[in-house]
Amino acid sequence: MINIKDIAKTYQNGEIEVQALKGVSFEIEEGEMVSIMGPSGSGKSTLMNILGCLDTATSGYYSLNDQDISQASEKELAYIRNKEVGFVFQQFNLLGRKTVLSNVEVPLIYSGAKKKKRIKRAEDLLVKVGLGHRMKHYPNEISGGQKQRVAIARALANNPSLVLADEPTGNLDTNTGEEIMDLFQQLNDQGHTIILVTHEHNIAAYAERTIELIDGRIQRDVVA
């Protein structure tokens, strides 16, 4: 499903060139749950952004669902972000001026779904993540764990083949974090491919496979 070869990413930080990734290669099969680990500055977020088509690699090959991403146009990347990839962020990244329901609707608006269908789909997803009773609330009226559930519902809106989570428990207490991880576990059991970026070992332990990055290179790639 995912196939990357020799992915490198170089940033121009003022005068200094920063090599965030120095040639990373791996494959991920459909239905896998993989965690990417590493200390800060190891390049794991950069890798995540490239996998999610938010950023493009300086060099190397990337294909998602047999489509060559390294050659994709900006418009195609937007389409992939909308249909193929679902994001869950550490900071939740909900739109504060919109209700929980409207937040889940956003990807559906960009995919051109009709209003009725959109609302139905958003409601179903919110029920699925256990927030059927909070749909008309605004993000600042709900707890952190609930926000992350909304974000997960939103990530699933267009039924993407890949769910990317960047430190999804980073802003949550341990108990809430475990609940969120259980939810990811359930999604994986239902067949969603999930890639998890974290620096916490107990969170990474939810995944059956762990890729460890250090200094822009893969240090270890182990299946538990």
């Binding site: 938010l54 900006e74 418009k75 937007a78 994001f87 990244n93 739109l95 956003v106 960009y110």
Partner: peptide, 16 residues
């Protein structure tokens, strides 16, 4: 800017 980033991550095209 952040809102624009979120919208783009969720699939908003340049034209949107």
């Amino acid at each position: 800017t952040r809102e624009i980033g979120i919208r783009k991550a969720l699939g908003a095209k340049k034209s949107n």
